[in-house]
């Protein structure tokens, strides 16, 4: 039996897709921090979360990661992409890179992705649902309507989110994402 009859194969990598997901998670992380300060609904959602809240949203098995949590003062902060030495209370793993690409190119909303068994949650489901609601809100605020509609289950109408609130939150979130 010769080695070359039955080859061993190591899987390759997808650096471009990986970089894209890393970049999106970076923007989302900073946006999480920003929206907690500027949007009343997001603020309310974050207030309901426990004081030791530390979220690790990542792509299994090897990342990239997005760490967001509450600091000692109870403010939402983006802690970067290294989960080492962080006390994670809620881990949300997207099962593989292709699923992350579907989610972050908005071909699949977070609801559809959950229904298609693409997410693994370790931690409190109630808090995880809150995180998904905030992600939907961020998509509405950060993206133009025709893209955001693909990413959320239902795009909020005027009665659910007034134009003034949307514009104000959008401008302030963008400013804080860029400035910090």
């Amino acid at each position: 039996m010769k080695n070359y009859d039955f080859p061993q194969i190591s899987p390759g990598t997808k650096p471009l897709k990986r970089f894209y997901v890393w970049l999106l998670l970076l923007i989302f992380g900073r946006a999480f921090q920003a929206v907690a300060k500027v949007d009343p609904a997001a603020k309310q959602e974050f207030d309901r979360m426990p004081s030791d809240f530390m979220l690790d949203l990542c792509v299994a098995p090897n990342g990239p990661h997005m760490i967001v949590g509450k600091d000692k003062q109870g403010r939402i902060r983006y802690y970067g992409w290294k989960p080492k030495d962080k006390k994670i209370t809620l881990s949300m793993k997207i099962k593989h890179l292709e699923a992350a690409i579907l989610m972050f190119t908005f071909q699949e909303s977070s609801c559809v992705a959950t229904a298609r068994d693409r997410l693994i949650v370790e931690g409190d489901i109630v808090v995880a649902s809150g995180v998904l609601r905030i992600m939907d809100l961020l998509e509405v605020l950060l993206l133009p309507k025709f893209i955001a509609r693909l990413g959320v289950k239902r795009y909020p109408n005027r009665t659910q989110m007034s134009l003034a609130r949307k514009l104000r939150s959008r401008v302030l979130t963008y400013a804080r994402v860029v400035v910090g």
């Binding site: 039955f6 061993q8 194969i9 190591s10 899987p11 990598t13 997808k14 090897n62 890179l97």
Partner: peptide, 16 residues
């Protein structure tokens, strides 16, 4: 199939 394994921890031990 092999392309779908990219960025996973799985490696093919033997392809028969």
């Amino acid at each position: 199939f092999v392309r779908s394994l990219a960025d996973s921890n799985l490696s093919v031990g033997a392809l028969v």
